[in-house]
Simulated assay, not measured.
Amino acid sequence: MSPVTLSLPRCGHRRVDHFLCEMPALIRMACVNTALVEGIAFILAIGIVLSPLVFILVSYGYIVRAVLQIRSAAGRQKAFNTCGSHLTVVSLFYGNIIYMYMQPGNSSSQDQGKFLTLFYNIVTPLLNPLIYTLRNKEVKGALRRLLLGSRERQGK
């Protein structure tokens, strides 16, 4: 899809008002009707974006069914905690991608596109270690001590 987007005619000398050359930003700069390109991009996004997401969700359906068969409540809780962390990361990533690439090109603002690009390229990967390590009891304890310790110091 990128070659088609890059070959769209641009009116005059314009700069991409974005952090990256994201496809929605490039389509927005075109000076021709982009409905066909947007339609093709939407259809491709269904296959490229939604297929892996559907695969992940179907896999989690099987995982949930298997976890519910675990006899110990502690075992089920531990398995669901692990799944919850992963699903949080998946929803952060795919939520932004779906919102950004599966909507009409001119319906979102340029600033909103910039924010989403930063979010899924920087914030989501930065949150990954935090989301996964908060499952660890030692990390939770250290974070609790850090936060409570700073509150105690502020109160003095």
Rank of each mutant, 00 (worst) to 15 (best):
R65N: 14
A79K: 04
T82I: 01
Q77A: 15
V64A: 13
I70E: 08
Y101I: 06
S59E: 10
M102V: 10
A79D: 01
I63R: 09
A79P: 06
Y94N: 09
S72T: 14
K78I: 13
F93K: 00
A79E: 03
F115E: 02
T88R: 00
G95S: 03
H86Y: 05
Y94D: 01
P104Q: 15
N106K: 08
Y94S: 07
Q112V: 06
F80N: 03
T82G: 01
I97T: 04
A74W: 09
L87M: 14
I98D: 05
G105L: 06
F115P: 02
M100V: 07
Y99G: 07
Q69S: 13
A79F: 04
Q112W: 15
Y99N: 03
Q77K: 14
A73R: 00
L92S: 00
Y60N: 12
T117E: 03
S107W: 02
F80M: 09
C83H: 03
G95A: 03
Y99L: 09
A73Y: 05
T88W: 09
L116F: 02
F80R: 08
G95R: 02
S91R: 00
V89S: 02
N106Q: 11
F80H: 03
F80Y: 13
S72R: 08
R65K: 15
M100W: 06
G95Y: 02
L92A: 01
R71A: 15
S91F: 08
M100G: 05
I63C: 11
S108H: 08
M100A: 00
F93M: 08
Y60M: 11
Q103S: 11
Q112G: 08
Q112K: 12
Y60C: 13
V64D: 09
Y60L: 12
L68I: 05
F80P: 01
S91M: 10
T117F: 05
L68N: 15
V67S: 09
G84H: 13
I98P: 04
S85L: 00
S107I: 10
S109L: 14
M100L: 10
Y94C: 01
K114C: 00
Y101L: 12
C83S: 12
S59R: 12
Q110F: 01
V89M: 03
S109R: 11
G113P: 01
I97P: 01
K114L: 06
Q112R: 13
Y62M: 04
S72K: 05
N81M: 05
S108V: 07
V64K: 09
L92W: 08
R71V: 15
R71C: 10
S59I: 01
T88P: 06
K78S: 13
A79H: 04
K78M: 10
Y60I: 06
Q103C: 02
S72G: 07
G61W: 12
I70A: 08
I97G: 02
I70G: 00
V89N: 02
G84M: 08
S59Q: 12
M102I: 12
Y94Q: 03
I63K: 08
S108F: 04
K114P: 02
S59N: 09
A73P: 00
A79C: 04
S72Y: 10
L92Q: 04
K114Y: 06
N96L: 05
S91P: 03
S91Y: 07
R65A: 15
F80A: 00
G105K: 02
R71F: 11
G95D: 04
Y62F: 13
R76Q: 15
V90S: 05
S59V: 00
R76F: 11
L68P: 06
S85T: 02
L92N: 03
V89L: 14
S107D: 05
F93N: 05
A79L: 10
H86N: 04
D111E: 13
